[in-house]
Amino acid sequence: MSATPAERTVILHGHEFSYTDSGSGPALMFIHGLLGSQQQWAHLVDRLDDNHRVVVPDLFGHGESAKPIGDYSLGAHAATLRDLLDRLDIERVTLIGHSLGGGIAMVFSYLFPERVDRLVLVSSGGLGREVSALLRSATLPGAEYVLPVIASGWMRDRLATAGRALQKLGMQPGSDITQVWRGFTSLGDADTRRAFLATTRAVIDPGGQSVTAHDYLPEVDPIPTLVVWGTRDRLIPAWHAASATSSIEGCRVELFQGAGHFPHLDDPDRFADLVREFVTTTG
């Protein structure tokens, strides 16, 4: 098993951009979701970098990357990832995107189809209007005044205390609760909150998701695509996986029974095996 790769930084668009780059061979790029970071994919790097080059960035506004004032649209994120690939001299890549990252991956494949070998969409945004009320609430007027209160140290401490009490009673949080909590704790500083609201409002409105891949994917040449979803996803409903087949020719769907919004964390071995099999048997 290889050592955990160190995070690296590069200056893109005048700001620091954090990523890991490990292994050699055909390139895989993992794209995290809203309030996520490259750490959500870290457990997969040493499962796949023995015969692939694995690149895992922190999107602008997330993780260790900068949180500048600016454009947080799907297209802006896709352009940044294209620029990172250019810096790394990577011509073509398989994109693996989770949630928001899935939406970015689809926009990337539309804008730069000559750079994409395959797509793996995990609990992806952009395939239907429905999304959790929690995320819709971040688009409401005044959310920028509410977030500092609910993400304050006082509130985080009390929620953490409640969580420890539940653990003492034998109630262990699943991947969804754990990751949502980690994302919530990242909102303690103003720059991260501003970037979160800008990113959310670029793709969601009070009624649900405001950007749909169904408008443009039928117009592009088909790219081999694997869609992965947890059957108990409470953030984006699993039936969106079926809707993908109407816009993505030859799309393959794999459901993880009992998994939530993070199937790659709920069953990482199955997920790694699926990705390895997909990238070696398609294209």
Rank of each mutant, 00 (worst) to 15 (best):
P222R: 13
H264S: 04
L274Y: 04
D267W: 06
D191P: 00
R232E: 12
A190Q: 12
H261L: 02
Q179S: 07
E219A: 08
R232T: 08
R164T: 13
P173C: 11
D267E: 07
D233V: 01
T245V: 08
D269H: 07
I223W: 11
R164Y: 03
T192M: 15
I248V: 14
Y216K: 09
F262W: 13
H261R: 06
G163P: 00
L187H: 10
S247T: 14
V211C: 02
L255Y: 15
S210E: 03
K168G: 11
T199V: 07
V228D: 04
V227M: 08
A241V: 12
G183W: 10
D233C: 04
I223Y: 04
P173D: 13
F256V: 04
L169W: 03
L235R: 00
A190P: 09
D191L: 02
G170L: 12
A241D: 07
F271K: 01
I204R: 02
V211F: 04
A195V: 12
L169S: 09
P222N: 10
R194D: 06
D191R: 13
Q209M: 06
V228H: 07
S175G: 07
T178N: 05
H240D: 15
Q179N: 11
Q179L: 14
I177P: 01
A202D: 02
A202S: 15
R252P: 10
A272H: 04
D233P: 05
E249A: 10
F196L: 12
L255V: 03
F184P: 01
L265A: 05
A195H: 05
